[in-house]
């Protein structure tokens, strides 16, 4: 079912695939994900990227804090970030406001920085796209 014009996007790892053919029965082979599937995987990442672009724009407008950038970049929503940081959800929600975020204590910033695996400086000045 593959098409010639479909180029493989990902060639990092080959996996085991099962298939069925009425003549040969069930067979297994190790190969890259087939092209159609690679398209779907890429779609997932494209959506992540476009969400990052959206929040970047809103940060530049001063409507959101840099925290929102890292949440999108790391694909974390409130409940997950709350689990990782131990902060209550409503508190994190407040930190999405630029005014509140800019007044956070160093310890709070350090917690966010360690969860996102960046330095505090980088946390305050994200590489907006």
């Amino acid at each position: 079912m593959t098409e010639k014009q479909d180029e493989l996007i990902y060639r990092n790892n080959r996996e085991l695939h099962y298939s069925f053919d009425p003549e040969q029965g069930y067979t297994r082979k190790v190969d890259y994900q087939y092209p159609g599937n690679q398209v779907i995987i890429q779609q997932g990442w494209d959506v992540v990227e476009s969400r990052v672009r959206d929040v970047s724009a809103r940060i530049k407008e001063g409507k959101l804090s840099p925290l929102s950038y890292y949440m999108e970049k790391n694909q974390m929503e409130l409940p997950m970030l709350s689990d990782y940081t131990g902060f209550m959800r409503w508190r994190i929600k407040r930190h999405l406001k630029p005014g509140v975020f800019s007044r956070l204590r160093p310890a709070t910033l350090a917690k966010y920085a360690s969860v996102f695996d960046v330095g505090v400086n980088e946390l305050l000045n994200p590489p907006l796209t």
């Binding site: 099962y18 069925f20 069930y26 599937n37 779907i40 995987i41």
Partner: peptide
Amino acid sequence: LGQVLRMEEEIGTAGAGFRFIYGA
């Protein structure tokens, strides 16, 4: 739609949402 397909075909399903592996 993409999300349904990702769950169906992405890693760890052996293809077609485990249907091939179940047939085997």
